[in-house]
Design a protein around this nucleic acid. Sequence first.
DNA 1: TGTGTAAGGGTGCATATGCGCCTAATTTCA
DNA 2: TGAAATTAGGCGCATATGCACCCTTACACA
Lengths: 154, 154
Amino acid sequence: MKAMRTKTKQNQIPAISLDPADCNCLAIRQAARQVTQFYDRHLGVIGLRTSQYSILSKLLRLGPQSINALAMLMAMDRTTTGRAIRPLERDGLIEVAARDDARTRVMQLTAAGRVRLKEAQPLWREAQRDFETRYGGGEAASLREALSRVVSLH
Amino acid sequence: MKAMRTKTKQNQIPAISLDPADCNCLAIRQAARQVTQFYDRHLGVIGLRTSQYSILSKLLRLGPQSINALAMLMAMDRTTTGRAIRPLERDGLIEVAARDDARTRVMQLTAAGRVRLKEAQPLWREAQRDFETRYGGGEAASLREALSRVVSLH
DNA sequence: TGTGTAAGGGTGCATATGCGCCTAATTTCA
DNA sequence: TGAAATTAGGCGCATATGCACCCTTACACA
């Protein structure tokens, strides 16, 4: 590494590709479409999208959350989150919890939501297992690590 | 590796995580949202989304394409592609080419499309350079490689 | 105590995403 | 050559995505 840097001036910033064919945004969006379809086909059996499963799952593991907090957890825009919870609320899977601050809407799982999540879990595990079996468990772990570094770029 | 496989029966399929916190789908969707926003903020200056830039870019590099062919190239659903080209057609950036097969709609860049693409290229390069500088050029190349293996899972 | 500011969230708009179902054109093959 | 199968694409529907702009509530502080 150090040897490379002292080699030539051109190597000071290594390997940045400005070839249009190497667009990181296109690459990640394509992959996201594929994986979403893959997981959605499994979860679709009980009428849940992966994004909806993710939200229910977060609420189960982390307890009631405000729209803003949930948006943060999902690395999602606030307004997107506000709309994403609507079908879940409509179907009685989540509800607004008691509020001390009249501005916030703290969402929590309902009993029906917990039931649906229980039904969804084996389907999600099937999707996860199928994916990791085909892609490779170790590779998947590396990929998740690389993706989390993308998210933490801000 | 071989030593691990003979160690115990449980290690025959190594490292598959069924922990809900390790959802590959959520990980990739979160990252896709971040990266899309990142690139869109750069390209937004001239009123193009990254997805639109990608389509124009493909048409420039690969020539006129049918909806189906374009969908394949973008790893995108056929109907999604059919709708994605609408704003581009409306704004006169692409147009339908001559057809031998009355079923197909072969899309091609217009002169205005080529101009817009020329304007967009420096903005895209800026986004790409910013991203790779912060994420790491080598890491980005590895990430793209890992993502392309996801897409090729089918 | 009034007021400016910050925080939480909603709405309108435009695009993105893909499934199920439909129509039209083409190709295959008996 | 005519019917069946294939191919190309559209449309309705529902959700996903985030920006600009707006309202309300809470808080800090003069």
